[in-house]
Computed example of a mutant assay.
Amino acid sequence: MDVRPAAALTAAFGAYADRDRSPRHWTGGDSTYSMPAPDGELWLFSDTFLGTVRPDGSRSPTVGDGGTTPFLHNSFVLWTAHGPRTVTGRDQDGQPAPPMPGPDRASWYWARAGVPDGHGVSVVYARYAQTGSGPLDIVWRGNVLARFRAGTYGRPASVTPLPSSARTAWGAWLERQGGYTYVYGTERTPDGRSRLRLARVTGRDLRRPWQYWTARGVWSGREADAARLAGPGGALFTSDEVSVVRHGSWYALVTQRADVPFSAETQIAWSRSPGGPFTQPRTVYTAPEAGPAGTYRNRNVIAYNPHEHPELEHGRHDIVLSYNVNSLAPADVIHRADIYRPRFLRLTVSAR
């Protein structure tokens, strides 16, 4: 397997973040899902910094901390033939707001995967709430589907509750194959890892009745029957965000290494079917930015949540991946704006 940085993609997002001087301009975000939309390539981000990057590479503190940098829990960047532009919503005062606003002041939505739906796009969002003062003191509360019409991505045309009774954050990945849309979800374990589950709907509309892959290897209409997908030894642990994309007769599961906290390793496992079992995940890349020996020489810098961008690939042996970079010390991404941006890889895999 040949693995190399997709330097042009990484540089394009860096150049876009640094060049604009609009107070509503994207300067960094995580999650980094993507999909083809009717009017361009739509990039889905969760926590997002807007504003401007100073000449020294820093950003102003966030508005909530007395600065001028808007901070949102989700946003879009739409990349068209004319270049990229940031897409947000507006609050009642006309200030930038998430395209998918939280249902109340105590909770918010983070982006999961999305798919084109003919007249625009459908995006799964997971609702979270804060449980303490730390950046990781959060809890998942439920899932919804937001539908956006082309050209009006700043507000959803509709929001529909999705199954949420089995402690599963659905929408970690959406894969369309053979007349079905497969919906992958993650269940967080007490030690911070995730277990993967699988559902499907007939056709493209996620508002249709769901079926769930069970431990008996059949589909059930009850969410409580959704089984944890298996690896070679039975248990399969993943990161919270993944991708499962078909390449020929194989499905590639892209995940962060899950048995080491804050691992910088991107791994791939393979299966003959959407529901596994998957092979042992194998490390294909270690993010050079992370940890005390990384490019930032900062023990708090981490890499996380890799996934695939199949619409950017050329043939079934080509894989384009992104991963996120952040810091466990929030001040770091204020002092160094370039930390908090996606990085991209291109892999060439042998025929399977």
Rank of each mutant, 00 (worst) to 15 (best):
170 W>Y: 01
162 L>S: 01
265 E>C: 10
129 A>S: 09
195 R>L: 13
63 V>A: 10
118 G>I: 01
113 A>P: 05
299 R>K: 03
104 D>R: 09
91 D>T: 06
21 R>W: 12
84 P>I: 08
275 G>I: 12
226 A>L: 04
159 V>E: 10
15 A>S: 12
103 P>C: 12
334 I>N: 05
269 A>E: 05
119 H>M: 08
97 A>W: 10
40 G>M: 01
252 A>Q: 01
85 R>Q: 15
333 V>G: 03
316 R>N: 15
348 T>M: 09
294 G>H: 03
309 H>G: 01
160 T>W: 09
53 V>Q: 03
29 G>I: 05
181 T>Q: 05
251 Y>E: 10
24 R>P: 07
164 S>R: 10
303 A>M: 01
338 D>G: 12
162 L>F: 12
177 Q>P: 00
29 G>S: 07
245 V>S: 09
178 G>I: 13
246 R>K: 13
249 S>W: 03
350 S>Y: 12
121 V>Y: 06
139 V>K: 11
148 F>Q: 05
152 T>K: 13
52 T>M: 15
72 L>S: 05
201 V>H: 05
133 S>A: 14
178 G>T: 12
31 S>L: 13
128 Y>R: 06
73 H>N: 11
17 A>N: 00
26 W>I: 00
204 R>F: 11
89 G>Q: 12
198 L>K: 15
319 I>F: 01
318 D>N: 10
331 A>N: 15
337 A>Y: 09
23 P>Y: 07
21 R>K: 12
68 T>M: 04
270 W>P: 13
199 A>E: 13
217 G>T: 08
134 G>S: 13
326 N>K: 08
308 E>L: 09
101 P>Q: 11
72 L>R: 07
161 P>F: 00
311 E>M: 08
277 P>A: 12
258 A>M: 07
331 A>C: 00
271 S>V: 06
21 R>E: 13
218 V>T: 12
81 A>V: 14
260 V>E: 02
36 P>V: 00
302 I>A: 00
11 A>I: 00
248 G>N: 02
153 Y>I: 09
131 T>D: 01
161 P>V: 11
323 Y>V: 08
40 G>F: 05
303 A>Y: 05
313 E>S: 11
232 P>V: 15
